[in-house]
Design a protein around this nucleic acid. Sequence first.
DNA 1: TTGTAAGCGTTATCAG
DNA 2: CTGATAACGCTTACAA
Lengths: 347, 347
Amino acid sequence: MGRKRFRIGYQHGGRVTVRTVADLAGVSIASASRVLNGLGGSPELSARVRAAADRVGYVPNAIARSLQAQRTGLIGFAVPDIGNPIFIQMVRQAEKVVSDSGRQLLLHVTRGDVASEVELLRGLARRYVDGLILSTIKVTEAHQAILANVAVPVAVTGQLLTDVPVDHVEADSAAGVHLAIEHLVKLGRTRIAFVNGSLDTIPGSIRHTAYREALIAAGLPVNGDLIEIGEFTFDAGLAASRRLLQRVRPDAILCANDLIASGALHALLSAGIKVPEEVAIIGMDNTGLAELTFPRLTSVDLGGGERGRIAARLLLDRLENPDAPLRSEAIAPYLVVRETTVKDDAA
Amino acid sequence: MGRKRFRIGYQHGGRVTVRTVADLAGVSIASASRVLNGLGGSPELSARVRAAADRVGYVPNAIARSLQAQRTGLIGFAVPDIGNPIFIQMVRQAEKVVSDSGRQLLLHVTRGDVASEVELLRGLARRYVDGLILSTIKVTEAHQAILANVAVPVAVTGQLLTDVPVDHVEADSAAGVHLAIEHLVKLGRTRIAFVNGSLDTIPGSIRHTAYREALIAAGLPVNGDLIEIGEFTFDAGLAASRRLLQRVRPDAILCANDLIASGALHALLSAGIKVPEEVAIIGMDNTGLAELTFPRLTSVDLGGGERGRIAARLLLDRLENPDAPLRSEAIAPYLVVRETTVKDDAA
DNA sequence: TTGTAAGCGTTATCAG
DNA sequence: CTGATAACGCTTACAA
């Protein structure tokens, strides 16, 4: 049993703690803490404490406070790829909600890697964040098992294939595809190609199916030659579109996201093909990119920002009320018509 | 003096701590901790502890560990605007360096707001991050005072106007402007316009001066009519370029960043002006955007990613060696010639 | 109102 | 090698 050692004054080498303030004010650390947190304290004592705090420039240590409070005030946001504007959109909106609640956003970049996502979820047991927004494009069985009992609340943006006890918000990309196809059909296009991202991803596979269904619903034939599959990037979109054009001559191209659509636009323009006169293009996600291209991209807005906002909201609500029933939301898509489908939208 | 209360077994409601493991293994928490950290422990005892840890799924609490270690393993990265691809570029590279060091990146969005940057710097005293990378476009006096004695190391990307004791890395955007002008002059352009961002920002004012100097160096007249000032955004670039075209007819436009350049490109193309034949365009930053437009943007690479990488490196080095001499690095710019200045770069 | 001390979960120090 | 305990800096019973 070690002998109790008493502390003497400002023994903290430069480090200012509540003890420093208390000693300087000549009060107990409990009183100092109380005053600093606005809980009680006689006027006279409060004044002394506050003066002392100001004098030494006291700022409470966030870690110690977190340990005591059992919460960090940090919310994690995991995205596969910070280079894709759709995730930027989501992060931006989520950040607003989170910072408005007095918390901060901790960004994780997973590279779409299942292993790192799983490790991330496992790591939540370390409790360095109070909750996590997981924006994933592929939910594997490995996810499911861990999501079933994570250490802190998780909100997922994206489709959930099976029952997992997490709040989530998803886009209705199938409906989005239908909107796009209907728009093109209305414009008289009949040879509508589809440049997709990877079928290994949930959005990729859903959009693939929806494309076929939408064509059939519109009374158009489904022609495998009109389909190209790559990745959700500009380069892949460019390459896929070039392959497509060597094989067939569509009168419209639906692209699985705006990056791909930019690639398709590039491929068409560099081949001297007129957009939208000869070939129309529709992107998906309606990111900032859609406004930048020339001509501007018609795009299906799948509510990316909205999803970020809602995911953050769901998570914060969950933190406040851990036992509330699970919530799932789906965002209705809408079409933003610009110049890659209709000439002179706003020239 | 309160009587000492002894703990009995698994009294932690569901919460697994090192004590849970120790109790289960029948050893002291000190031994458990040692084994779990790979420091000593007889084979037999180690086995018992590890088995117990596995059994209860023990994961060390990051907050408690941080409190003890006096470090969180978090590095803050403050950017004005996550919508600008230049910052994405920087964050991306910095994130790599930081995560390779076993730490994580905490993203702050300051909206370029001086007040929130200052508050951020003040808040560092809370010690929720081990260090901060501050990417700012405007260093005010308020910054200076606080930067002079922040609680944790800060690395700045951007110009420092006065002496502040922080490591920093900067672009040489003046040299970049010279590269651009020389390129245009070599191509025979003589009416070279400049669409700039705000002069209130360091990059804005530096590029402004450099533009004039470069023209003079090239033996060209400086004509105020050829200068437009707006913001570092696409919309501002578009609007400014349209104002410019109503007034004069340049044969080249230098833009203060790629977003502005995209706007300029848009303005030209929508006015039916041929790029690069009639008007050439050069952007700055060489972001991903430069590859997406059609034609692709010639752009001055100011080493954005490099700056992110180096800033992270500087900060980590500083953490390791707090008393090392301050370091400042400047990244040499280089020109990436694409199709907005030279036809058929890679068609 | 104020002070004493326990406790948050770790790691580090020091005896045994 | 192992165990008891102090310490990190804070909040909060509880006691005076």
